[in-house]
């Protein structure tokens, strides 16, 4: 088991290397540079800045130094926009906020989505199923940036129950978490329903019925574990999607998370920050996918670890 986890994590390295290379080259291929501004900058100043950030070196040298720095010391270079800040400092400040938002949202999404999907499957083709699935479709179809303003409008601006924006007390958490969670809850509900329907028809559930177990025990003790497999496999990419999706949530609710810096750094041509954040996103996506593979083994003993 441990060997599998280690091996699975090792497969991440080449892909991560690919992402790093791609992003590093991409940001530098783009026309313009981090220090092109509207007004004229004296040539010496620009030369000094380029020298400080090593932009006058050939790309291959810059790439080698950046990669060596990242692997040996974990340093992702200085930010080109926020002077005297390194990229890892900026990420260290903002990633925990995004993670907190993301984890809460995932928890809420599972808590809403899974029961809804199980209900749909257990009561298949009844009005409860129809209502649950229509709600799920609604959740998939309403984008976060439409949902968020509507929630703010009703709960903050009309009813004054919750604050409009910012990231301070738990009351500030409610709207952004709900907003980030609902679309994911909708996906989970559909997957849970499909997974449960599949399992409910399988032989071991029929055996459980034949033994005379109550419907409740059959569902909770036997079917649930296998029925949740599609949901589990969605949680990996789902969590990464949640982080990217929180770009919107962070913007609307003015939350100091990493998503804001991604768009900002891209627009500022802050090469190092963009590359650093893209790398973190890629790494998180791959680690969560690996975690899903491991979780599979626990849920379904038939899964072969060594493929």
């Amino acid at each position: 088991m441990l060997a599998f986890i280690v091996r699975r994590l090792l497969t991440i390295i080449p892909t991560l290397f690919l992402v790093a290379t791609f992003v590093f080259v991409l940001v530098r291929l783009a026309p313009g540079g981090p220090f092109d501004t509207e007004r004229e900058v004296p040539a010496e100043v620009k030369a000094a800045l380029d020298a400080k950030f090593r932009l006058s070196d050939p790309i291959s040298v810059q790439y080698k130094d950046w990669l060596v720095g990242a692997v040996t010391t974990g340093s992702l270079g200085p930010s080109m926009k926020y002077h005297n800040r390194t990229v890892e400092e900026l990420i260290g400040m903002t990633l925990p906020v995004s993670m907190e938002l993301g984890l809460w949202a995932m928890l809420v999404a599972v808590a809403i989505g899974a029961p809804l999907g199980v209900l749909g499957a257990v009561r298949q083709n009844t009005w409860k199923d129809s209502v649950a699935m229509a709600a799920a479709m609604l959740g998939i179809s309403v984008p976060r940036f439409v949902l968020a303003p509507l929630l703010v409008l009703v709960f903050a601006l009309k009813l004054y129950w919750l604050p409009v924006a910012r990231w301070e007390s738990w009351r500030h958490l409610v709207l952004p978490v709900i907003c980030a969670a609902l679309p994911m809850a909708a996906y989970i509900a559909r997957l849970a329903r499909a997974g449960m329907l599949e399992v409910i028809r399988s032989d071991f559930v029929r055996t459980a019925r034949a033994k005379g177990l109550s419907e409740r025990v059959i569902i909770t003790r036997h079917a649930l574990k296998g029925g949740m497999l599609p949901v589990v496999s969605f949680l990996g990419p789902g969590f990464a999607g949640l982080l990217v999706g929180s770009l919107v949530v962070e913007k609307i609710f003015d939350i100091p998370g990493m998503g804001r810096y991604l768009v900002e750094s891209v627009l500022n041509k802050d090469y190092n920050l963009t590359a650093g954040i893209a790398l973190v996103y890629g790494g998180l996506l791959m680690v969560s996918n690996a975690a899903v593979d491991v979780a599979y083994k626990f849920l379904d003993p038939r899964v072969e670890l060594d493929r």
Binding site: T15, L18, V19, F22, V23, L26, V27, L29, A30, P31, A240, G241, V244, L262, V263, V266, L267, T274, A278, Y281, G282, L285, M286, N289
Partner: peptide
């Protein structure tokens, strides 16, 4: 391999750049 990449992030980068 493409599945494991953060494609949306790439789209953001490509469009902006």
């Amino acid at each position: 391999v493409l599945y494991t990449l953060p494609l949306l992030v790439f789209v953001i980068l490509l469009t902006a750049f």
